[in-house]
Design a binder for these strands. Structure first.
Lengths: 210, 210
DNA sequence: AGTATTTTGTTGCTTTTGCAACAGAAAAAC
DNA sequence: GTTTTTCTGTTGCAAAAGCAACAAAATACT
């Protein structure tokens, strides 16, 4: 994230200043929240990693989104239309701040500085989310596994300002994130290596073109 | 859209109240805007239809997003990381309001009611966009063309509260929206008909299951 | 340190998808 | 109202992706 509003610092200063905010800790594999129509939860992940997952009727799991430090999530971002439930699952120990969206939007009745500041920067926080979603859509609309991989690698390379970078999650999860079969993705990675598009050492990738 | 904030009415009341807002009309096939890093445009489509498209190096066109009445778009929603330029193209005659994001965020120096109200409801406007993007991602992450089609049909059925509904754009564009080959999609539609999952008459679809 | 579990890397086979091409229908342009 | 263009519907063939299964490596667990 590169916002003018630094969520991390803001939280450090204010996390105890409003008693309407819940701070909870979740262990690995625990369910942080499930998305239900009527709840209007708005969460900020202080530390740890979590996934937004959907289980369809056949039990197939799809990772819809990955969350890490300072990411925001919650039902406010989702109009639940499908029958399948959505869960946010902790991938590691997670610290989470949980608010009601109404408290932010209509300003908390306590009129505390915490909600006031959060309210002011809310558009920026959400805009950042939109940007990430747009990138995700751009990747997912690519026609082939190869294009998805190269698109994603370009993204990481641009972010780190480096031709060499580390894939930030497991290859199994990457396949899920790009919505392709893992073995097909591995095959494509091998081809990209053989055709000298990339160098690969575990999760360390180097782009060799351009 | 089903926001508590009615963009359409708001615009009618206020569209001439601030002279920092540009109102422009575009004819079919005209480029409304291109996404460039430094510009911070924020646009509201008053009437008409437009697409956000990307052309890759081979000239392949991808429709990344569709916009219709009261949809918002602009570079603020996008961190341009790819080399390919993004364009918003009018699919029919379009009326567009164009602002600078800074004017909304920091409040317009004129301190006009228009920017004040827009600023207040900005989170809600953007949240609606996030919801749409999330739905799109959910569709795009489905593994097969069949699942994408059924997922999309479910969405339309839920929205219209009806098992019978009309696909709101051309089948050519639908294929593009679901990011699948048009002929493959047509084949799958035929199979869905033959296997009695759906009834189809042109763009009118009826769901036959459940 | 030793065991259990998850992740990586690979492959043969099957199914799905994409590509190309074309004819008829529908819509838009003149 | 006629022509031109776009959209729909179809198909054969080729290419890509998915599935299943397994061994080796890495990681987590106790």
């Amino acid at each position: 994230m590169n916002l003018s509003f630094d969520v991390g610092n803001f939280i450090k200063d204010f996390e105890n200043s409003c008693h309407k905010v819940q701070k909870k800790t979740f262990e690995k594999n625990e369910v942080i929240t499930s998305y239900i129509q009527k709840r209007e939860q708005f969460c900020i992940l202080i530390s740890g990693n979590a996934d937004l997952v959907r289980y369809d009727l056949n039990g197939n799991k799809t990772i819809i989104d990955h969350f890490s430090d300072n990411d925001i999530f919650g039902e406010v971002f989702y109009n639940i239309t499908t029958n399948n439930e959505l869960f946010v699952e902790a991938k590691s120990r997670c610290e989470v701040l949980i608010y009601s969206y109404q408290d932010i939007h209509n300003k908390c009745r306590q009129n505390c500085k915490f909600h006031q500041v959060l309210s002011e920067y809310l558009p920026e926080l959400i805009l950042d989310k939109v940007t990430n979603l747009n990138m995700r859509v751009e990747l997912l609309t690519k026609r082939s596994t190869r294009d998805k991989l190269l698109g994603y690698f370009n993204l990481l390379s641009t972010r780190t300002l480096n031709k060499t970078f580390k894939i930030p999650f497991s290859l199994t999860d990457l396949a899920d994130y790009l919505s392709v079969d893992r073995s097909a993705m591995m095959r494509e990675l091998k081809l990209l290596k053989e055709e000298n598009f990339i160098k690969k050492n575990g999760k360390i990738i180097t782009l060799l073109y351009k």
